[in-house]
């Protein structure tokens, strides 16, 4: 006969294993994952992409054979430090609210003479979009540790914020999903990836503040435009045009929610 005490111990062990959704177990799993993430962050390959971007920033390119060094990202021509933490913002010269990528397209057009269509029509991580990603990596690295600061008192920004809120809750596609379906609740996750609750400040800074990011599993650096586009793809709905108003409106909404939080760009994802 087996020892009854041993049997009970076995039973308890089985119970402990078969309750993976128990708070303690999942906390422990999360701890392990966080450790893994910290180990990854030590050698963030975004550095390699950013190094390419820095070269591109200073490289004479396009029909006008000019560099981007005079590009005004909102803090004055050529000022990069902290610039992306304060974007999207309203630009007087274009009369539009622009995010980092659309602003860079403006600079490429006015300074270098590169047609924005070349960026818009390129495939992700190919051609001009690959160059865009490198530039973005360089610029957001210079905002690491800065605080999100977008001006929602500006009427154009406020309008974009409201539009972004509408877009966030707008249900569409064959699955009738909105952004809020996945990002509108506390403590949700997909597999072992937590889904930040983007309605709250904490959630918004966790999401907005850690993108653009390098994704280890596929070895790709993704910009915010790429990230947002993929959200729509996963919604199984029409993918927005690169740099279109809806993407900027969503960015303003997220940045507005994240206002005051610390940016840790470029992020690193599993």
């Amino acid at each position: 006969m087996e020892n009854p005490q041993k049997k009970l111990a076995c039973l308890l062990a089985v119970l402990a294993v078969s309750a993976p959704l128990g708070a303690q177990t999942s906390d422990k799993l999360m701890e392990g994952i966080n450790e893994y993430r910290e180990a990854l962050a030590d050698g963030n390959p975004s550095e390699l992409v950013a190094a390419e971007g820095e070269e591109l920033w200073k490289l004479k390119r396009g029909p006008k054979n000019a560099t981007l060094e005079k590009c005004d990202l909102g803090l004055g021509p050529g000022v990069i430090k902290g610039a992306s933490a304060q974007m999207p913002r309203f630009f007087k010269d274009t009369g539009k609210v622009q995010d980092l990528e659309t602003r860079l397209m403006t600079c490429m057009e006015t300074l270098q003479g590169i047609d924005p269509k070349e960026v818009v029509n390129a495939r992700w991580l190919k051609g001009e979009k690959e160059k865009m990603a490198a530039l973005v990596a360089y610029i957001v690295t210079e905002s690491n540790g800065h605080k999100v600061k977008v001006d929602l008192n500006n009427p154009a920004m406020k309008k974009m914020y409201d539009m972004g809120k509408l877009a966030f809750y707008y249900r569409t596609g064959p699955m009738d999903f909105s952004c809020a379906t996945c990002h509108g609740d506390q403590g949700k996750r997909i597999r072992m990836q937590e889904l930040p609750d983007l309605r709250t400040h904490e959630g918004a800074i966790a999401g907005w503040g850690s993108w653009p990011a390098y994704r280890v599993s596929n070895g790709q650096f993704w910009t915010m435009q790429h990230r947002l586009n993929d959200c729509y793809r996963q919604q199984r709905t029409a993918e927005p045009i690169y740099g279109s108003d809806v993407t900027i409106a969503l960015s303003v909404y997220l940045a507005g929610k994240a206002n005051g939080g610390k940016v840790v760009t470029p992020g690193i994802k599993r």
């Binding site: 030590d42 050698g43 390959p45 390699l48 280890v216 070895g219």
Partner: peptide
């Protein structure tokens, strides 16, 4: 070994 490896 992954793309863009890190060695410490």
């Amino acid at each position: 070994v992954s793309k863009n490896p890190y060695l410490a």
